[in-house]
Simulated assay, not measured.
Amino acid sequence: MKFGSIDWFYKLNEMVSFPAKFAFYYNKRDNVIQVSKVNSKAMVENIRYRDIEPSPLHFHPKETALIKVIEISSDKEYHDEIVQLQEIWRTKFAG
């Protein structure tokens, strides 16, 4: 399924209810942006690092860095954030 397609948006909305908090990571080894949904009731600025740190138990190799944690209010905002990060990091999105 192509990133940004109608099917992609449909699947995204099946998996995520907005607003939601997300942690964005840069995976240097694969040169991709990865995203995890943050399941914390804390405000973004109060989320503990241990709740979002890159972990091999999830999908992060050692060459992964946390870019940002933000709350996103819509599927379009989520898409636009990924597009912006792809441009900044000159990379692609990993699903």
Rank of each mutant, 00 (worst) to 15 (best):
M1W: 08
M1L: 07
M1T: 13
K2F: 03
F3E: 05
F3M: 10
G4E: 01
G4H: 00
G4S: 05
S5E: 14
D7T: 06
D7M: 12
W8T: 06
F9Y: 15
F9D: 12
F9Q: 06
K11V: 14
N13E: 15
N13V: 08
E14L: 13
M15T: 12
V16M: 02
S17Y: 07
S17W: 04
F18Q: 00
P19H: 09
P19D: 11
P19V: 14
F22H: 09
F22G: 08
F22W: 12
A23K: 10
F24R: 03
Y25L: 09
Y25G: 04
N27F: 12
K28N: 02
R29C: 05
R29E: 10
D30M: 09
D30Y: 03
D30P: 00
V32T: 07
V32I: 05
V32S: 03
I33F: 02
Q34I: 09
V35Y: 05
V35C: 04
V35R: 07
S36H: 11
S36R: 15
S36Q: 14
K37P: 01
K37Y: 05
V38K: 01
V38M: 01
V38P: 01
V38N: 01
V38A: 01
K41P: 06
K41D: 08
A42E: 15
M43K: 14
V44L: 03
V44R: 04
V44Q: 03
V44F: 02
E45R: 11
E45I: 12
E45P: 00
N46G: 04
R48N: 08
R48Q: 07
R48E: 09
R48D: 08
R50F: 13
R50W: 10
R50C: 11
E53C: 09
E53L: 11
P54A: 11
P54F: 06
P56L: 15
L57Y: 08
F59A: 09
F59N: 07
F59P: 00
F59K: 13
P61V: 02
P61C: 02
P61T: 04
P61E: 00
K62F: 14
K62D: 15
E63P: 01
E63N: 13
E63R: 07
E63G: 03
T64A: 11
T64E: 04
A65E: 07
A65C: 07
L66P: 01
L66A: 03
I67L: 10
K68V: 10
K68R: 15
K68T: 13
K68M: 13
K68D: 10
V69C: 09
I70M: 11
I72T: 13
S73W: 01
S73G: 08
S74H: 06
S74V: 05
D75T: 03
D75M: 00
D75I: 01
D75L: 01
K76F: 01
K76C: 00
K76D: 02
E77A: 08
H79W: 10
D80C: 03
D80M: 08
V83W: 03
V83R: 04
Q84F: 12
L85M: 11
L85E: 05
L85N: 02
Q86M: 15
E87P: 02
I88H: 14
I88W: 10
W89R: 07
W89K: 06
T91F: 00
K92T: 13
F93A: 15
F93C: 11
F93L: 15
F93W: 15
G95R: 14
G95W: 13
